[in-house]
Structure formats: C-alpha cells, structure tokens
Design a protein around this nucleic acid. Structure first.
Lengths: 198, 198
DNA sequence: TAAATAATCTAACACTGTTAAGCAAAGGTA
DNA sequence: TACCTTTGCTTAACAGTGTTAGATTATTTA
C-alpha cells in the first residue's frame, strides 16, 4: 500500500518539523524560552499532538542531542579525511569539535549542559572578580619578568582555567571518570602548564 | 532606637533564611526544583513576601552566586597561606578551586552555568558515543606501543577534552576572551598534549 | 451510506514567577 | 483613649509552563 507509505512519510515530516521548529525557537529566544505550545504554534498544530511524536519535552531534547552527536561525528570524520598524519588528524578533530561548538551553539549547549541564561557575567561585582584576580596575579608573579606581558599571563590563565573547569564540568554532567584519573589529569595538566611558565 | 536595630536584624535573618532555604532545596532536589513557593514553604511564609527581600528569583540566584565567589576567594586565600613558593601556591589554589567545586557542587553549578538535569549520559546510544570513540581511538593510534595502556590513553583523552570543553564553556557563558587568545590557548594546549604523547 | 478508525482540538490539572488588592496588627500622634 | 498611618503578611489573580483525558471532526473502510 503506497498510501500507507505516504502517510508514514507525512508523519515523519511533522516529526522533523517539530525538531526544526524547536531549534528555530531556541536560536531566536534561547533554551529557556522553548515551550510545547510555542513549538505547536510554529508547526500550526496544538500542543497535545506533539505527544504523538515524542513522549515528552525531554524526549525532544534527547533527540536533538543525538542529532548533535551525529553531526559532530560527521565533522570529525571529515577532519580525518583531510589529513594523513595521525597527529594532524587529531588536531583537526579537536578543531572540528571547537568549530562545531560555535557553529551549532544551541546543539552544543544541550549536548553538554552549558547554561547561558543567568547571572555571573552581567553584574561583575568585585566579589565575583576576586578569585579570578587572585589566580591571575599569582600567575603573573610566577612568570619571569622578560616574558611577563598581559597576553602571556592571559594565555596561561585561560589554559589553566579551561582544563580545570572543563574537567569539573565533565565530571558533573557525566560521572564516568575515576578519582585517580581526575587527580592524574589535574596534576599533569596544571603541573605542566606551571612548569612551562618559568 | 535599639528596637529598630532589632527589627532590621530580624529582616536580615529572613533574608538569610531565604538563601539558606534555597540552597537546602537545591541540595535535596536540584536547581530545576527550586521554586518561590517551595522557598516560602520552608521559611513558613507565603511566596509574595520573598519579593520584599529580593527583586525576583534571579536576584536570589545572583546572591548565591556572589556568596559562592566569596567562599571560593577565601579558600584560595587559605591555599596561599599554606605555602611559600609561588608555584606551589598556584597549584594549591587550583586544587582549592577543584575541591570547592565538589564540596559546594550546587554553588559551582550556578556560578558557572553547569546544567545537570537532562539527557546525554543516561541513554548512551552509539550515536552519542561515536565522537568520543573516534577521538579515543586516534589518541591510541598516536601513542607509541610501549606506553599504550588504557589508563594512559584515558588520561590524554580527558586532558584534551577538558581543555577544549572548558574553553568553550567559558566562552559561551562569559564572552571576555578574544578570538586570537582562544586560538592561542587551543593551539598551545592541544599541541602540547599531542607532543607529549609521542 | 454506515461503521470504524484516525487525526486533531478543547478543557482541564497542577504547577511556575509575579503582581495587586486587602486585611490585620503595630506604631505614632492628638 | 481615639484616630490615623504604616508595616507585615495573605489571598486572589494573571499569564505562562508540561501534560493528560475527553470530545470532536475528518478520513478510511466495509
């Protein structure tokens, strides 16, 4: 029955429309503005029909997450294919990861639980800046005078911060690394960066 | 007027109670379960009185964020005081940062926008694992056979991932680094780690 | 054409943040 | 003591959220 196929294809279409509408809304207004009724509006239905395609709102987020990983995988595959040396391939893969994060910012946010909405950055009161300044000043102190430019201190500061914050985030969102592994990574990375300063 | 002081002190008390109740709820049920009515319940008031102490819900989050930074600053100060060598001080400061993140997990989450709620980790389907596996395999390929243990590959993988993801998160939540700075950090860190593998 | 099935909507529930209106107790003033 | 004003707090409501049950409409099948 070809008509059955057509109907299934149509069902698939609205499923994709739901996902597309969701991403559209998020791109326009951010994740916290995404609601079932807004999605329904965009695909010109009422909210309950969405539940014929997805169990709940979380299921939509999960599917978008999955699609994000598929896209990321493809970009990495492409990165590999553009180089022959393994080390260059690896570097290209991480660069692809980096580029993906900003090209598909909204997908990256839901994939890795990066919240944007609130606080922290707008009202930059002294209390908030203090820990950062303490670290920055200490790094400045360690770097020998002949290398001590603002840019150089910045680089070291952000490198340290990135690896520590990154490892913390990874541990908080998915708990799959052992404690010894964490200490190892932390010690190695921080130690390495500090050594490279002197 | 001493009675005025007493009343002001009481007002201050309920303000602190609101903050304490908020943290309690978050520790018990997570950030997404925090609601004005639940806070009111806990301090034995009704929701609207909270608005006499905070402009809105975001203001509560902001204050908790601020307090988080104060605590972190103090811990770092302590870390400094326990060492004399600047390099050791810096390492202790980062360790304090790390320990703070897990000792005050909920504060860290609101300070740095680390979402926990959704997706990604529970239903670990192949699509989701693929990018990670590609990177892991490539790192394994680069590491010379005599060093190639699972632990060693893991360490390098997580170090790379942490620095890249950390830098991305930092850029997404607060936009205060320049593009050249990012490229610099990325190139330096990834390049350094790859070089250390061989 | 009549019955059965599928597609869709309306209405509702329990929740969310937030605001306006009202009540009741306390304070100051005559 | 009597009144008035201020304060503290509550109730009720609005508009929004995710989600479900029931009713309604349209389409397919017999």
């Amino acid at each position: 029955m070809a008509s059955k196929d057509r109907i299934l294809r149509l069902k698939d279409d609205t499923r994709n429309n739901i996902l597309a509408a969701s991403i559209d809304i998020v791109k326009e207004e951010g994740w916290q503005a995404l609601s079932m009724r807004k999605i329904a509006d965009k695909i010109e239905y009422t909210a309950p029909i969405i539940y014929e395609y997805f169990a709940n709102k979380d299921a939509i987020l999960n599917e978008l997450t999955r699609q994000g990983y598929v896209k990321l995988g493809n970009l990495m595959q492409q990165a590999i294919s553009e180089h022959s040396d393994p080390a260059e391939q690896l570097e290209a893969m991480w660069l692809a990861y980096w580029n993906f994060a900003f090209a598909e910012k909204e997908l990256y946010q839901v994939m890795y639980g990066v919240e944007v909405n609130c606080c922290a950055m707008q009202n930059m009161c002294p209390d908030i800046q203090k820990p950062m300044n303490m670290l920055w000043d200490k790094i400045e102190e360690i770097i020998p005078a002949d290398k001590r430019t603002e840019e150089y201190v910045d680089t070291k500061y952000y490198t340290c911060w990135s690896v520590v914050h990154g490892l913390i985030s990874i541990n908080m969102t998915r708990k799959l690394t052992s404690d010894e592994m964490n200490k190892q990574v932390l010690k190695d990375a921080i130690g390495g960066i500090i050594a490279s300063m002197k």
